[in-house]
């Protein structure tokens, strides 16, 4: 808030021209950019995402290609162009790590998006409409909470077969619960704000008020939660993969690579350390970014 709250003369000066206001989003962005940890996190995340998406095309080996000359775990070797070596089946570790990153990030982002849409919709409706609707929706959420996740995923897998898409749905279907609760709580406090009453007094319908006033005002909190959910989902995916319920060979993800690497730990620790390092750095960066976002979006805490 620089010159804006200013003196009446500040106001007189811009009488001629229309000045652009600075929205809360712009303010938050500025604060985020001033936070070194968050910016570093963001930059590294963008790099990892870029390398994961583009990298596999540039490498001499693909993720599922077996180097038949060496069907064993090889150390890094420039001559064979296995820059990170190979896994126990002779597949290029770098290519697999990058491809695994692509899958892990995709699962993380897509499943979170699913959670975001369901969670915000349900939470905002439950919180704003209240009464019966709220009761039924939230009891359903409670019910879903009480179903064990693995059990739920196994049932889905059994019914629909193992499927890549199913995984997004399964994880998303679980993660939206918390999102819905958070959004509902936020909506309940917003509902009693005077600007909501003002919107009603000026003839706004319920749907209009939810879309126009409630959702934009809960987005800040939601975004923080999203950045904290993505790493959670990545972990969840690796857990499911670990149980053999996730991605299928020869496709891979960080979780699976870590699982494979753990088996090879004594022979070639490299196969564990490299994907684990990628995943850890990514999770760290998401957490830093999430923290930064929370500080940026909630200026009362500064």
């Amino acid at each position: 808030m620089s010159a804006n709250l200013a003196s009446p003369h500040g106001a007189a000066l811009d009488a001629a021209a229309t000045t652009e206001g600075r929205s809360l989003w712009q303010d938050a962005w500025r604060r985020l950019m001033a936070n070194h940890a968050a910016v570093t996190g963001l930059v590294i995340l963008v790099l990892i995402a870029l390398v994961s998406v583009v990298g596999p095309y540039l490498l001499p080996w693909t993720y599922d290609e077996i180097d038949w000359r060496h069907v064993e775990a090889l150390p890094p070797d420039m001559a064979t162009r296995h820059y990170f070596g190979t896994d126990s089946l002779g597949r290029d570790l770098l290519a697999r790590t990058l491809f695994g990153g692509r899958i892990s990030l995709m699962v993380g982002i897509l499943a979170t998006t699913v959670a975001l849409f369901i969670g915000v919709t349900v939470g905002a409706i439950a919180g704003f409409v209240g009464g019966r609707t709220d009761q039924y929706l939230m009891r359903f959420v409670d019910l879903m909470y009480s179903v064990p996740l693995t059990f739920f995923v196994i049932i889905l897998m059994v019914v629909f077969g193992r499927n890549f898409i199913l995984m997004f749905l399964a994880i998303g279907a679980v993660e939206w619960l918390t999102m819905a609760r958070i959004v509902r709580g936020q909506t309940l406090t917003l509902r009693n704000k005077e600007f909501i009453e003002a919107a009603r007094a000026s003839g706004g319908s319920t749907t209009w008020i939810i879309i126009r006033h409630i959702v934009p005002n809960v987005l800040g909190v939601v975004m923080v939660y999203v950045t904290l959910t993505i790493p959670q989902v990545i972990l969840l995916e690796s857990f499911l993969s670990f149980l053999g319920l996730g991605i299928q060979e020869p496709m891979t993800s960080w979780g699976m690579l870590i699982n494979d690497g753990a088996a090879e730990l004594e022979v070639s620790p490299r196969t564990l350390i490299i994907p684990a390092a990628f995943m850890t750095v990514t999770l760290f960066c998401f957490n830093f970014l999430g923290d930064g976002l929370r500080d940026a979006l909630d200026p009362k805490d500064r």
Binding site: M1, N4, D14, A16, T18, G21, L24
Partner: peptide
């Protein structure tokens, strides 16, 4: 209110 303030946000006003 000055018409030039049309694009400002509430927190920028007194």
């Amino acid at each position: 209110l000055l018409p030039g303030m049309v694009n400002r946000y509430p927190h920028e006003f007194s």
